[in-house]
Simulated assay, not measured.
Amino acid sequence: MKAFLPLLLLSALVALCVCTGADSDTKSVSVGDSPSEEGVFVKRDLASVVVRQKRAGAADLTQVQLESLREVCELNLACEHMMDTEGIIAAYTAYYGPIPF
């Protein structure tokens, strides 16, 4: 479910590029450039702010470790809510600090 939004944004960007006929060697257009240039592209650093990338730490944890974090986070209602919206890694880190393993 959490991977749905980035996938949707990527699909929309691909569809837009296909519809406008943009190719891979098109120069990027910054926010302040004139609208007469074709294409809707942003610089990499701006795009990384808009589309968050998956944290590397979540891939390193096993299912047992993730379940252990969930059990701790479920005891705090605010942490549990954040876990549902932002993910277990972000919620645990926000309320309890760095992950112990």
Results as ranks from 00 to 15, higher is better:
Ser36Asp: 13
Gly57Leu: 07
Asp23Arg: 12
Thr20Arg: 13
Gln63Pro: 01
Pro100Leu: 02
Phe41Met: 11
Arg52Val: 14
Gln63Asn: 05
Thr26Ile: 13
Gln65Ile: 03
Leu75Gln: 12
Ala47Gln: 03
Ala94Met: 04
Glu74Arg: 14
Val18Met: 07
Leu10Lys: 08
Asp45Val: 03
Cys17Thr: 09
Leu13Cys: 12
Asp33Ala: 15
Leu16Cys: 09
Thr62Met: 01
Glu74Thr: 08
Val72Ile: 05
Ala58His: 00
Gly39Glu: 07
Gly21Ile: 03
Val18His: 06
Arg70Gly: 01
Ala78Trp: 14
Ala15Ile: 04
Ala91Pro: 00
Ser28Gly: 09
Val29Phe: 06
Leu8Cys: 06
Val40Phe: 14
Ser36Gly: 08
Val40Ser: 09
Pro98Trp: 00
Asp60Glu: 09
Lys2Val: 09
Leu69Trp: 02
Leu66Asp: 01
Gly97Tyr: 07
Gln65Gly: 02
Gln53Asp: 08
Ala3Gln: 06
Pro98Cys: 00
Gly97Arg: 07
Leu61Asn: 00
Leu75Met: 08
Met82Asp: 11
Asp25Asn: 15
Gly39Phe: 10
Arg52Ile: 11
Ala78His: 15
Pro35Lys: 06
Leu61Ala: 03
Leu46Asn: 08
Gln63Val: 09
Lys54Asn: 10
Val42Ile: 15
Leu10Arg: 09
Ala58Gln: 01
Phe101Pro: 00
Tyr95Thr: 05
Leu46Arg: 05
Val49Arg: 09
Leu8His: 05
Gly32Ser: 15
Val49Cys: 03
Asp23Cys: 12
Gly97Lys: 07
Lys43Trp: 07
Ala78Pro: 10
Asp33Val: 11
Ser68Gln: 05
Leu5Thr: 12
Glu74Ala: 10
Gly32Trp: 04
Val64Thr: 10
Val72His: 08
Leu77Ala: 10
Val14His: 14
Cys17Lys: 13
Cys73Pro: 14
Glu67Ile: 04
Leu46Ile: 12
Leu7Gln: 13
Val40Pro: 12
Gly32Glu: 13
Ser28Arg: 14
Phe41Pro: 13
Ser34Ala: 15
Ala58Ser: 05
Ser24Leu: 15
Arg52Trp: 07
Arg55Met: 06
Lys43Tyr: 12
Arg55Asn: 11
Ala3Thr: 07
Gln65Leu: 02
Glu71Ser: 10
Cys17Gly: 12
